[in-house]
Nucleic acid binder design. Structure first.
Lengths: 357, 357
DNA sequence: TGCCTTTAGTAAATCGTGTTACAACTCGAT
DNA sequence: ATCGAGTTGTAACACGATTTACTAAAGGCA
């Protein structure tokens, strides 16, 4: 009970104190606690003593010292455009589950589509020695880091990047065939903002599928969500249904000759429905509306939303799994792309096409 | 151009290399780069040489070495129940703005109301030497850490904690007076789940204000959102309007003698509206509905939602500001509570009370 | 006994930075 | 010539864990 020179300060006990206390060297203690292979010669007896003392004195290895030595941090960086509600939250729920199980923490950084930030944040996080990156809805094209990268919902064919993508062809096919079967021939499209990697990719799928099922796309029925309305810089917010309200309003002013509209996501669809109602049209009586994502509110909107479900939670889980795997064995081959399956959820916002010739 | 023993490996240049290159000691370089007070004797000439070389060789001090030495990390921990969409996202938008401006990053941890995790995560993050904690919707009662703590929307009177709270009395007063003025006398209440700190606090305010304005609360008209339906453990999700749908359904089964309902938040209100409609009641024709928070979808719901706006973004900003301030001057006095002002937003979901006696 | 292997450990270097204590050198004043 | 006071720096240690290289003793075997 004599207080030595290094009597435990209430807060913290380090390796040296623990070793002194045990009357062993730091080396031995460290080897035992880390289950190092070179510790095989240490007898069970001693081993037990060490582990018990560490437990009893509540020894916690210093995170920085350890990371400095091993140059790995047990944390990853997550880079997303924003903390938008529909997408980010769902994907991250999956990510969190996997990372937590593996004792990993994560830093979040939001670039808000600012090119400068997209390049700066990864650099800053590399300085903090994150072991890998998870990109959400963000192209890896301009990101150059010395650690594994997994991009969810992006499509850059770049060295070092694994993409987790939805099977857009299947997704679009399900949605359009559903509308087609209901008799819809004049379908409007609300494309996603340019900044989002999925936007063009999905549009390509729409064009392909239209040809396959014999549907003509009228350019006068195609509108696009503005990049600006998606960004927080302008005071807007990607979660505000306003992103869908305004484009629909604009479309209605110049053209009402359509019986259905396929929206880029559920939020936009909710805004579009509101615009249709404000213009005196009923959903699905006059116009059917299909969304994308199947966010949690989709089932509770009025009318409830027919939509293509993205398995966002699973995409997050898968992304995190692949990243952790790649971190664990840095040298091994890794997949360049992993495809996930969509699923059409039919609810109240779609119905038979009205017969206006 | 001769490659010395320590020729720059493409990745990284450290202090020793930089010093060698400059033919100065590490000490000198370090002192200059950190603007240390003891460097006042170093001539401008040398100083400039050092700074320029650091710039040119792209010298980045090693984060771990620096943190090990100074034992601070330039990062904070954020502890929240979940990544729920309405609340978390809005508050964090504000938090991110402030932290980023101060060159701080943050770890996020989700406890999902699990008591064990609520105590474990802070410990783990303290090991990672976070400089402070931000609690969202989480009581600080069982959290004991050696760094500053700021709790947003919590009310624990604990040493070391600053609470950022809404003025609930004012919030409730605005909402109830609005209903009262519309002629409502029989008002139902949907209380928040027990786990959330604000729930009881707001309920107290409701009782106080009711007495003040002469409103009688009928216990038969009071329902409560279930803790379980709020938690992700059960497969539910705090963002699903289901949290409000079910309680309202339950209430309607036993009692329809009310003309308005005041819901714990907007999500629940949207679910409640759906339940009312499914039961054949119109909103606001038969029943008026008031929400809380003013999330982004509130304006686009059908009918759009009358609600009490919480300045969530500002609460996040304020919380982060206070935390950073407290981190910067650890010894100084700090406020125990900071109150923010709510604002009633009147939209379509409330109207005059129907005259059923 | 002499040689080799196994057992049970230890001393010291390393990671990269920050900081304290001190050394050499110049210059002017006494 | 010598004392003191700046000026311009440096050597060496601290932070705390990991890891390499090494030692000292015990046991096995010819």
């Amino acid at each position: 009970m004599a207080k030595g020179k290094n009597s435990t300060p209430p807060g913290h006990v380090n390796l040296r104190m623990l070793a002194d206390h045990l009357e062993l060297s730091q080396t031995t203690v460290s080897l035992v606690l880390n289950n190092s292979p070179s510790a095989k010669s240490i007898p069970e007896e001693t081993r037990k003593r060490v582990v018990e003392a560490a437990q009893r004195l509540n020894y916690r290895p210093n995170y920085f010292a350890r990371s400095l030595r091993q140059s790995r941090s047990m944390s990853v960086g997550v880079l997303a455009p924003d903390l938008s509600e529909g997408y980010f939250t769902r994907v991250m729920s999956g990510v969190v589950q996997e990372l937590t199980a593996a004792h990993y923490f994560f830093f979040t950084a939001c670039h808000d589509w600012n090119r400068e930030l997209i390049e700066k944040y990864p650099r800053m996080l590399v300085e903090r020695a994150v072991d890998g990156f998870l990109l959400l809805n963000t192209s890896a094209d301009h990101i150059d880091v010395p650690v594994p990268v997994v991009a969810i919902s992006a499509h850059s064919q770049v060295e070092n990047v694994t993409n987790i993508v939805l099977d857009h062809h299947a997704a679009v096919e399900q949605a359009l065939r559903h509308l087609f079967d209901l008799g819809h021939r004049r379908i409007a499209f609300m494309r996603g903002p340019q900044a989002i990697p999925d936007s063009d990719f999905r549009w390509d799928a729409i064009q392909d599928v239209s040809i396959e099922i014999g549907l003509r796309i009228d350019p006068a029925c195609v509108i696009r969500i503005d990049d600006a309305s998606w960004s927080m810089k302008t005071g807007y917010h990607p979660m505000a249904p306003e992103i869908g309200y305004k484009p629909m309003q604009a479309l209605l002013e110049r053209n009402r000759d359509f019986t259905a509209v396929f929206c880029f996501n559920d939020i936009a669809a909710i805004g579009a429905i509101r615009a249709l109602k404000d213009a005196g049209l009923s959903v699905p009586g006059d116009v059917s509306v299909v969304g994308f994502d199947d966010i949690l509110s989709a089932a509770y909107a009025t009318p409830s939303l027919t939509t293509v479900r993205q398995p966002l939670l699973e995409m997050g889980k898968k992304g995190a799994q692949v990243l952790l795997e790649r971190i664990a064995n840095r040298e091994e081959a890794y997949p360049a792309e992993i495809t996930m399956a969509p699923e059409l959820v039919v609810r109240e916002s779609t119905g038979p096409a009205v017969g206006k010739s």
